[in-house]
Design a binder for these strands. Structure first.
Ligand code: NAD
Ligand code: NAD
Lengths: 223, 223
DNA sequence: CATGGCTTGTGAAGAATTTCACAAGAACGC
DNA sequence: GCGTTCTTGTGAAATTCTTCACAAGCCATG
């Protein structure tokens, strides 16, 4: 019997960096599957994912034992295992709040729907926008948010409102029972510990590049 | 004489996490300045930035000594110091490659221009798009890229093309002499070590949220 | 000008993460 | 069946990052 999918239930805390890399491995595996690869070794997985083979094996070892010595990992099996671990076996309902430039771009992003993230509602406080459709999803009034959430039980809220309103919107979203927030506004959010927040701060990434450029020119040791 | 801005020249390697936090502090300081604060302590800076006061002081200590014991940090002074450290004292020329949904949203993003990142060129390989204007910047043909770059010497390329073309575009951009890339495509890029890449992978962040949600329900120790 | 209350800067300790290195298992050829 | 080659899984070591804890400095007040 071929290696039944291990139930992903480590009792230890898993580092966020490990979880990020698991997502990355999943992406590499998708490509490998598309190229018709049956099997992949930790060395190849590492090369394509930009890390080391020891890191790959260690990351996976937290959740079980998925490979075969001398062979490597079965691509299809590992995809299933990683999806299980990451909670991608189901559909996640997403609200987007803020139907502006970035919010509209995200609605139709296939990278989300491919992984089971389904946008079920878009909210905006501008009456001009309410009622319009974005990629098949209607823009709703902010007034409805709590009411809709009680019925639809969305899992994740994506915040794409101006930074100065981000905290207020986060408060409402939390009060409405949503326990995961992805924040695109460049403002640190303060939420109860039962709520998970991930921030995507693009200006911050650019600043990291600027830093790298000035350091490089100044002759920073490249480590 | 009031604390002349220390030249930011640590000989040691500085962790990426430290640099990210410096950007964050800068954001908190902007808000503090807007509220009229003259001075701010590491405790307040930490609370608003979502870290600890010891972390704030340690981060800053890598670059010099910016505070006054018993008083805290002068907001305006620290802003200047951080901008210096991060290389935000100058204008950075940015090319955006891929004038699709996310590329167009980024062109007009004020968070970039506010920090001195100026979009000087947008490129697309779709002839239909070439010549159109996006927020005052014309979309140019990919054929021109190398030629324009030799003249304009852009510092940073933002890649917003489909994942399957990201590597090819990265290769061209590197060959054109650009040494910093911000990659929005969900594909790991392989570039020479002289080039710095930062990837913003939004699906990956969502997957991190999904993981947090399944773990939380499964009763992961909250660390 | 002495005292008390605050706050920084920083070595040292502690914790977390990554890398090393190797025993053990699997496949293949002969 | 046996040796060779490959590759995993994992303790242990090494490295990196964060937190602790406190001496030293600054300011206000009396
Ligand atoms: N445009 C970009 O490329 C970009 C990039 C990174 C981050 N961001 C951040 O994303 C956020 C949105 O940016 P954008 O460019 O899409 O702005 P935008 O102005 O195009 O869109 C913001 C939308 O939010 C709505 N809104 C405002 N206040 C609201 C509230 N209280 N409740 C509900 N809706 C509200 C507005 O009506 C508008 O439709 C900002 O915080 C911005 O800093 C934008
Ligand atoms: N839309 C989103 O919300 C979103 C979010 C995160 C990441 N992304 C990623 O960003 C990238 C772009 O996404 P999008 O939604 O803007 O797609 P899009 O299709 O709207 O835009 C892509 C643009 O790139 C151009 N292009 C294609 N190949 C090119 C090439 N070889 N050289 C130059 N230009 C080329 C196309 O003409 C098009 O204008 C994708 O990799 C996507 O995965 C998108």
């Amino acid at each position: 019997m071929p290696n039944t999918p291990a139930l992903p239930s480590p009792e230890k805390h898993i580092a966020e960096s490990t979880v990020r890399r698991l997502s990355l491995y999943l992406r590499v595996l998708d490509q490998a599957a598309a190229r018709g690869l049956q099997t992949i070794s930790s060395v190849v997985l590492a090369e394509e994912g930009g890390t080391t083979s020891a890191q790959v094996r260690k990351d996976l070892s937290f959740f079980g034992s998925f490979g075969k010595r001398g062979r490597g990992y079965d691509v299809a099996e590992l995809v299933t295992a990683l999806q299980d671990i990451l909670g991608l076996g189901r559909e996640w309902k997403v609200y987007i709040v803020g139907a502006g430039k970035i919010g509209s771009a995200l609605v139709s992003y296939r990278g989300f729907s491919q992984r089971g993230f389904r946008v079920v509602g878009i909210y905006d406080n501008n009456p001009q926008m309410v009622g319009r459709m974005l990629d098949g999803v209607g823009i709703r009034s902010m007034a409805q948010l709590e009411h809709d959430a009680a019925r639809e039980l969305p899992d994740i809220a994506v915040l794409t409102v101006p930074a100065e309103h981000a905290q207020a919107v986060a408060d409402r979203v939390v009060a409405a029972g949503i326990r995961a927030i992805m924040n695109f506004a460049p403002a640190p959010l303060h939420v109860p510990p039962s709520v998970t927040v991930k921030s995507v701060n693009m200006a911050l990434e650019l600043e990291g590049l600027a830093y790298a450029l000035v350091r490089r020119d100044a002759g920073e040791p490249p480590r």
